[in-house]
Amino acid sequence: MKAPVFFHVRLRRGGGLAELTEVIERFTPVVQPLAPSAVVAQLAGSHRLFGVGPVDLAQRLRLQAAAWCGLETVVGIGSSWTVAAMASSRTQSSGVLEVTPSETAKFLGPLPVGELYGIHRTQADDLHRLGVETIGQLADLPSETVVRILGRAGRGLQEHARGVDRRVVVRGRAAQTLSVRADFARDTLDGWEVHAATLRLVTELAARLRSRGQAARSITVVVSMADRRDLSKTRALRAVSAHTDDLRLAVYGVLDGFGLQRARLRRIGLVADAVDAAQAHTQLTLDRAREARLRVEPVVDALNARFGPGTVAPAAALTGQL
């Protein structure tokens, strides 16, 4: 039986996900958007239908996306969702990278374990402490050892390290997302102005989640640089939450990881992977300041709903508007 072919298509710049999805649907109906800036597709016989191989088909897709929609894309090709996603982040100048089934172990093996698609930073840290530095080392560990280190989630991660991904593309199913964005009037150095704008975005995003009866599982931070580069990283929250504090800590953690220092920024955007708020559980803590902030959130939400968004906000978020 021939191995399936997955395309993982990334936008080089934010925006245009709906348009990209429409372009890919011209090649295959099995397409699933992955907000904020990627699409995964499964191609059963599309390359035979069009009379070209997967790489040529990917180049044709990229050309149409650029010509019709002005979208710059890269495409990873693999026999599983994970392999295709890993390939799409390593396409270099060609814009397309195919990893065949026979090349999967050689491709994944030397890569740092922290770059495995879907792994969380805390999981990578646990592996590092035990001397597991590469994806190949994770793949070679006894399964029982992986489960002891990472719990039940370790089984899936080890399968991904071996190039196995049991997920299938579900046509038209996009994760529920909420997004907010701030554009700077001029290229802005990372500093108090950027942090004030970020806090305003976090506050707005958290309030919108609560107003819709939703909470976030993860937050994606997208930063557009003055040199036209985009940085994007997703961080899973420790627990599903719609509390401003929890979202703020996750976002600031991502920004610190970017190491922006004196970089000039044009835009910052946040995207929350939203689920029903019933999945969120608030635990009691001994932190009186946090408990006070949690109690005041409904009051702030009510005031902003009555008098307009931003009427009440953290002082640090207002600093950039003075």
Rank of each mutant, 00 (worst) to 15 (best):
F7I: 01
D165H: 11
A87R: 07
E144T: 14
E133C: 07
V146M: 10
A87G: 09
L199P: 06
V223T: 03
D187S: 11
A153D: 07
V296C: 08
V147C: 05
G14S: 10
A175C: 10
P4N: 07
T319Y: 13
L130G: 06
E159H: 15
G172C: 05
A277F: 12
A175S: 14
A67I: 14
A250Y: 13
R264P: 02
V55E: 15
T188L: 00
A3L: 01
R152V: 03
R267M: 02
L97F: 14
T145H: 12
R267Y: 04
R217V: 00
G95C: 13
G213N: 02
A313K: 15
L116I: 11
G259E: 04
G70Y: 15
A317K: 02
R267L: 01
A41Q: 03
R229H: 09
S46R: 00
R248M: 02
V75D: 12
V74C: 13
T104D: 05
P309R: 10
Q283T: 10
R264Y: 12
A316M: 05
E133G: 07
G114Q: 07
R293N: 07
L178K: 14
R173N: 04
T177C: 08
T145Q: 11
R266N: 02
A85M: 11
L265C: 04
A278C: 10
P4E: 04
G151H: 14
V146I: 08
V5T: 05
A236T: 13
G191Y: 09
Q279F: 06
G269R: 10
R186C: 00
E103F: 13
E159P: 14
V132N: 06
D246E: 13
L97I: 01
R290S: 03
R290I: 00
A316C: 01
L71G: 02
L189I: 06
P112E: 04
D230R: 14
A289H: 14
L150M: 11
A38D: 02
A124S: 15
R167M: 03
R200L: 04
L255D: 08
A174R: 15
S218L: 00
P54H: 06
Y117F: 12
E103P: 06
T311M: 05
L270V: 10
V40H: 02
A250S: 10
I149Q: 06
E19T: 06
Y117T: 01
A196D: 12
A239H: 15
Q59S: 09
I77G: 08
G118M: 04
D287F: 09
R212I: 00
T82C: 07
T104C: 10
D301T: 09
G320Q: 12
V312S: 11
D256H: 15
G53L: 02
D230P: 00
K2N: 06
A174D: 14
R10L: 02
G95T: 10
F258D: 01
V23K: 05
E103L: 08
G154A: 06
H195D: 07
A313E: 14
N304R: 14
V251Q: 07
G253N: 10
T21W: 07
A316W: 11
F50T: 05
F107V: 00
A66T: 12
A207C: 09
G45A: 06
H128W: 15
